[in-house]
Design a binder for these strands. Structure first.
Lengths: 162, 162
DNA sequence: GTAAAACCTCAAGTACCCTTGAAGTCAAAA
DNA sequence: TTTTGACTTCAAGGGTACTTGAGGTTTTAC
């Protein structure tokens, strides 16, 4: 497993118009490209969010398609979405093979629904806060912000606590 | 400190059961009204996010206006906004006196700007994800999701719609 | 007056999401 | 070949946001 015919790492399709699906990235390369620390990548791997092959010397080598997973994870992190939700969104995206167009399409749609829920919660609060600014909203009972069970908690049965 | 030699603070609603304007709430009442656990309230107090008076027996009594602070804190929590950001938003809202209309207006505006930033980040990601769904987005360089440094910082450039 | 419920402090524990450090191994450049 | 940097595992530590429990006190209700 020490055969390293590793070519220059290329993001774009080669001259034939095809990707090189066998191209592998080290943990450091993954880190540089995604901005996610190597320790975090190992942590994600322990959780099963990502996966890697190993060289004969036991070092990680990531297939290119793992970049996409890691990037989506880091986006989730920046938005405060817990890793468990990410795991859900990735449910049917294969770890061991390069996901197909359809795999990612389905995951993207799930992902987008997550974001939409979150955005709707924020928009509602913004609207209510605008009301508070306008009216002073010193009456506790009138302010939806202060009785939040009504609105975020009842947008469907899906995962709240976004 | 073994007897109730305290007279300065009235803890409960008067004998009429009406809400006096300067009515004070126990930690349990605050908890029931806000849905925030007593332990969390004590924690917020340790952080300086809220404040209380003490009875002669050293029990907490919260002025009514503290309900508003606690509720806003719990809203922030549900949206994944860290307490440090809440602290910033509360910067000029007095802890010791009932905040004025203007105090809350100013805080509401700051709060709303926070929410807006968050929402813009999410919206941008939603747009990009829509692109990914449509095109498959298998080209790494074309996908903004995969080069996230650009996007959250970019909403100053003005909104663009699809 | 007494008993139960609610409160107090302080320390430790939990859960998530990692980071840091120690001690050693692997891979690629000089 | 040697050296250097990147990598490995495992254990412990850190920040955030609390919860739980022990042991004791205060307040309320009867």
């Amino acid at each position: 497993m020490s055969q390293h015919d590793e070519m220059e790492i290329e993001a774009e399709p080669g001259p034939t118009g095809k990707h090189a699906p066998d191209e592998l990235l080290t943990v450091g390369e993954m880190s540089r490209r995604t901005g996610v620390a190597p320790s975090a990548l190992r942590f994600y791997e322990d959780l099963g969010l990502i996966a890697s092959h190993r060289t004969g010397g036991n070092q990680r080598r990531y297939p290119r398609h793992m970049l996409r997973r890691v990037s989506l994870i880091s986006v989730a992190k920046r938005l405060g979405i817990p890793l468990s939700d990410v795991q859900t969104a990735f449910e049917n995206v294969p770890l061991d093979t390069t996901p197909s167009h359809e795999d990612w399409q389905a995951a993207s749609r799930r992902w987008k629904r997550q974001l939409e829920l979150r955005r709707l919660g924020i928009e509602q609060l913004e609207r209510e806060l605008t009301g508070c600014i306008g009216c002073g909203c010193l009456s506790m009972k009138a302010c939806r912000l202060l009785n939040p069970d009504d609105e975020l908690g009842e947008h469907g049965a899906g995962p709240q606590r976004l």
